[in-house]
Nucleic acid binder design. Structure first.
Lengths: 166, 166
DNA sequence: TGATATTGCTCAGTATGCTGACTATCAGTA
DNA sequence: TACTGATAGTCAGCATACTGAGCAATATCA
């Protein structure tokens, strides 16, 4: 007997291209490579993660580590090492908080401010390069869809995005 | 004097939400968390990376490590550890190649085949969950745009995707 | 054939990310 | 105020990813 309709055999593993998870990994992989290449060509040694942390510290002087982690959706155990490296490079400082002796207040240094200013063009060109296969409209649409999917999944990772609380 | 038009001050660092790189990282972060949760709930201990490698070994029995890496866009130095863990879990085997004494031929074990079969529903539900904020049409569009951006950036990472060569 | 280049794999070192555990501290309440 | 629970930060351990180096084997070409 011959089936009228093809059946999903047990061998029909989905193509990678059909897996959002695989596409997510791959796009992120390219994004990091582009960022490092652009920033490296400009003569700086800063990772995407370090850049985001530093920019957020600059925008919110004196914030503590947990708040910083929430603003950029990093795990609190990851942020420790990231800040270690920013401090070690002289771009940020860790100070004891006066209000809460458990917390550390983070501030950017002049050197950090300078680095951030000089690095901005590379960061922006990196963002363009990672979308270079798409039209402007498609790039916008990709970002919109990513934002929407991320918003719906925010609580599913250990390190969700958190707003500043007053 | 008051400016008629707001000027981009040096403080106008782009919002994270405007950075494709940040969105890529965040979406990937959620995708991994969802995958691990779904697969873990089903009683399995397999990462997205290990799953993709195992499925690709099954589909291409006897392939060597470099070819495997190319098919799923992993770095060759990363794949070593991934295979170590698959072998250690009894899901795959590493054999000396007869044609090229530098190469290792990879094959899936019966246990690996069983695991792959039983794990498939969790993997598929994970893919649905990570798109749960989007309509079916939006999910398709997101995947299309990711594929397009990835294709254009393929050569920009150290571990580009490579087709099987005969 | 012999020198050279390339390739397959591994390793050491660094940087995210995560799990889970732990300390110190703070906050709320009985 | 003493107890309890929550919170800030760190640490150890594991799993990707990558850089760069190195070894063994193969390919290429003068």
């Amino acid at each position: 007997m011959i089936r009228a309709v093809p059946v999903q055999s047990e061998n029909s593993v989905k193509e990678n291209n059909e897996m959002p998870g695989h596409l997510a990994r791959r796009f992120q992989q390219i994004a990091v490579a582009v960022f490092l290449a652009e920033v490296g060509d400009a003569g700086f040694d800063l990772t995407p993660v370090q850049y985001a942390a530093l920019a957020t510290i600059k925008a919110n002087p004196g914030l503590d580590q947990v708040t910083l982690a929430g603003l950029i959706a990093y795990d609190r155990t990851t942020i420790t090492g990231v800040i270690d490296r920013l401090v070690q490079k002289g771009l940020a400082e860790r100070r004891a908080s006066s209000r809460d002796r458990r917390a550390r207040e983070l501030v950017i240094t002049d050197e950090g401010r300078r680095t951030l200013r000089k690095i901005t063009p590379s960061v922006e060109s990196a963002q363009r390069i990672m979308l270079r296969g798409l039209s402007a409209k498609e790039g916008e649409e990709l970002m919109r869809l990513l934002r929407k999917a991320i918003a719906a999944g925010n609580e599913l990772s250990r390190a969700p995005l958190r707003d500043m609380q007053a």
